[in-house]
Simulated assay, not measured.
Amino acid sequence: MEFTAKRVVIAAAVAGVAVVAVGATVMATAADPVSPEVTGATPADAGHPGEGKYTTGDYVLTVHELDDDGEGTSTAIGPHTTYYSKTLHGNGTRRHTVVKFSAGTDGDGPIVFSYPVPAPGRVADCVAAGTEAAPQVRCETRLPAG
Rank of each mutant, 00 (worst) to 15 (best):
M1F: 09
E2C: 07
A5N: 15
K6V: 14
R7K: 15
V8K: 11
V9Y: 07
V9T: 14
A11P: 01
A11Q: 07
A12H: 01
A12M: 13
A12L: 15
A13K: 04
V14D: 01
A15V: 10
G16M: 09
G16C: 08
A18E: 00
A21E: 01
V22M: 10
G23A: 15
A28T: 12
T29L: 12
A31P: 00
A31L: 09
A31Y: 02
A31T: 00
D32Q: 14
D32V: 13
P33A: 11
P36T: 13
V38E: 09
A41M: 11
P43V: 06
P43M: 03
D45W: 03
D45S: 11
D45N: 09
G47T: 06
P49I: 05
G52W: 08
G52L: 12
K53W: 00
K53Y: 00
K53P: 00
K53N: 04
Y54R: 00
T55K: 08
T55V: 11
T55S: 11
T56C: 05
G57C: 08
G57K: 02
Y59D: 02
V60E: 05
V63T: 08
V63N: 02
H64A: 07
E65N: 07
D67T: 12
D69V: 14
D69F: 05
D69T: 15
G70D: 08
G70F: 07
G70Y: 05
E71T: 13
E71S: 12
S74Y: 02
S74D: 12
T75K: 10
T75P: 00
G78W: 01
T81F: 03
T82C: 06
T82L: 09
Y84E: 02
S85W: 04
S85M: 06
S85P: 08
S85T: 13
K86S: 14
T87H: 04
T87A: 08
L88R: 01
H89P: 07
H89V: 03
G90W: 01
N91W: 08
N91R: 11
G92D: 05
R94Q: 15
R94S: 14
T97C: 04
V98H: 02
V99N: 08
F101H: 04
S102C: 10
G104W: 10
D108T: 11
D108R: 10
G109V: 03
G109P: 00
G109K: 01
P110M: 06
V112C: 11
S114K: 09
S114W: 02
V117D: 11
P118V: 09
P118W: 09
A119T: 10
A119P: 06
A119S: 13
A119Q: 14
P120H: 04
A124P: 05
V127A: 14
V127W: 08
A128E: 06
A128G: 05
A129E: 09
G130H: 07
G130P: 05
T131K: 07
T131P: 02
E132R: 02
P135D: 12
Q136K: 15
Q136R: 15
V137W: 03
C139W: 08
C139F: 09
C139N: 12
R142T: 13
L143G: 15
A145N: 11
A145P: 03
G146R: 09
G146W: 01
